[in-house]
Write a protein that binds this DNA or RNA. Structure first.
Lengths: 207, 207, 207, 207
DNA sequence: CATGAATGAGAATTCATTCAT
DNA sequence: AATGAATGAATTCTCATTCAT
């Protein structure tokens, strides 16, 4: 039995019925993953919760990896779209305020999906999905870079700068999601991350 | 009969022979984990690679979780000790230089153990080892806090500050470990993280 | 996740194929139990003998206990039904003759299933099946009590009387099954048990 | 690895130390068997409880079967001796009273060792120990036969009579040990068994 | 003789995947 | 296409037994 299986969906479902099926399955998988983690997400259970036969599941996902991978992709894409939407909403607020809004959004996004993020982080490597995740991050970094330019900030090495800025902030958020320091209010945490980012930006100007 | 199995080693190996055995098993596990990830680390395989019978393995680790947990603990402890050692070596260099040294050390530590860190981050939650990991982080954060104080830096909320500082830097490093930006030299990355941290510290003084 | 596993069948087999499967598995288990005792009845062996995959076995029995338990239940129920059938056949023969028929039936039932009865007695306690067995015994005791009443025998404490009568007779039969006295004909043994029971009944009348 | 192992002790221990060792091991085994049943009586556990090394245990018992077998033998022998002692104490009481005393003794013997008797009944067959048990029963049946003769009772087929008498009474007692009827006093149960036996004896005289 | 660390065959159970209907 | 019963390789873990010290 070959373990080297395809990771992309077996067929691109074009008919409505299939579309719905795929959607149902992905939603069920996401829910199970969110509730019980990877261990509880057996293919049979997914099919059962989705109200679909296990055979049908395998009609659309050649194996479990493809299924989990699709969930990750869908989640990542959804998040990217959400960020894009929020960025567009931004008006002419001062840079610090804009960053605070973005950071709060990220904070809430992670906090609201703790278990799923955990699974994503756990399983993405095995599933060769990390690249997708990192591509998404780079995409968002690009958007943020443009935002900063619009505020007149032109780092020497823009890619590197955005990498540090974004992953610095996310590093704090991610850890906070798992091990939030006692006695600290969410708001204070967000303020502090803003400080980290603002300090970095100032440092770039006057090193 | 409790199915909630012990997570600590079954017997504390006091005799030389056993000491060696435990060591051998942990080393083999680490190697397998490093090479092939959690999925490849079956208990039988560990025993085989360690050149030990499966029975002996279970003589010292009541179940697989305890084994993996022990590996995580051992690694965490080793890292903590290493950091402590490096911190002691620090002399009277300017603060920026001290931070650079510490950041480089962390950078190299992660880079040199990529796969193991991945497994640790993956499995720690299931094994209730996260607390150990975070405790270790907090311990180091405390040491770093003391270091900063020795440089005359007295944050208002020291715990929160150290949390942000440390996890901000580690966030960049961790991501870099998995997705290093192309065309960037290690040295540049380290410099940039130093900038992130220094900017944050200055921001604390003059907000 | 409860480790206290279900003891009842995992799914109630409604389709013909499954019905047959469950039947096949139970029959195979009974045969193995009869031939080699509990120790030889490994789940894998049962599956093999039944010509069924081990997976299928676990599809219908959540664990080994449930399997053995089902065998015991099935056997007990079968025996009860058999006794009921025989009791119905009874006509207007004199009481002694009626008892002789019943005793002979019990004698033959035990004799024909020696090893299975042994396993049942061995494993029933662990499997919490004893209650079922004793309930069955009490049920039959009730039927016998009614029979006696129809012959004008009204013991003071009917439950106790039936307990002694029935288990007295069964005690002899059970031992005989394992250690039949040499030089004694089955018929003589049965006659003697009838004497034991008749003597007891007379004693009740004229103590 | 041969499963057909010796069942008799590996060596007959003649030295005091060994005698004590064997005794200690048998006692520990009995205790474990009594408390937790056969499943809990692993050889390693027996050795531990006995305060003896597992190696020493195997010095005196070639395998587990021999160990359990020895426990059964010892228990059976002890019981036989106890019965003999009690029988000797009997004076010139009327036969019914003598029988009552004996039955009460048997009743108490079983009641006081429920779990051990259960194990004996379970494991004896596998261990080819049944013969010993039945031999002991026959021995006691012989003594009881002599007792009856001393009361002027001369059954036609003495062996068969004693078989029925003894196993009839024991059948009631054994079942009572596991499933005592509610609302019945021990004393009443014993009286009823006496009635069963007395009725049988009368039946022998005037059929 | 005693020790107890070491052994490894074998048992129960799971779950991704297939395929006859 | 859909179904879900059936499959069986693979995994964890136990415990009787051995043998070097």
């Amino acid at each position: 039995m070959s373990k080297k299986a395809r990771i992309s969906p077996r067929k691109s479902p074009k008919q409505q019925r299939s579309q719905g099926l795929v959607e149902t399955i992905l939603t069920a998988t996401t829910r199970i993953l969110t509730k019980g983690g990877y261990e509880t997400a057996t293919t049979n259970r997914v099919a059962e919760i989705a109200g679909v036969s296990i055979g049908s599941l395998y009609q659309y996902f050649p194996n479990k990896e493809a299924l989990i991978g699709a969930v990750i992709d869908r989640t990542v894409e959804g998040n990217v779209r959400k960020v894009e939407r929020e960025l567009k909403k931004l008006g002419d607020e001062p840079i610090e305020e804009a960053l605070r809004l973005i950071i709060r959004m990220a904070f809430e996004m992670y906090m609201g999906n703790r278990p799923l993020f955990r699974v994503m982080f756990e399983q993405a490597p095995r599933l060769e999905r990390v690249q997708n995740i990192f591509r998404a991050r780079r995409h968002i970094a690009g958007l943020l870079g443009a935002l900063l330019e619009s505020y007149g900030i032109h780092p020497r090495n823009r890619e590197l700068t955005m990498f540090v800025l974004m992953n610095g902030a996310l590093g704090v958020i991610q850890t906070a999601v798992f091990d939030f320091p006692e006695g600290v209010a969410d708001q204070d945490m967000i303020d502090e991350i803003v400080r980290l980012v603002m300090g970095y930006l100032k440092e770039l100007k006057n090193p």
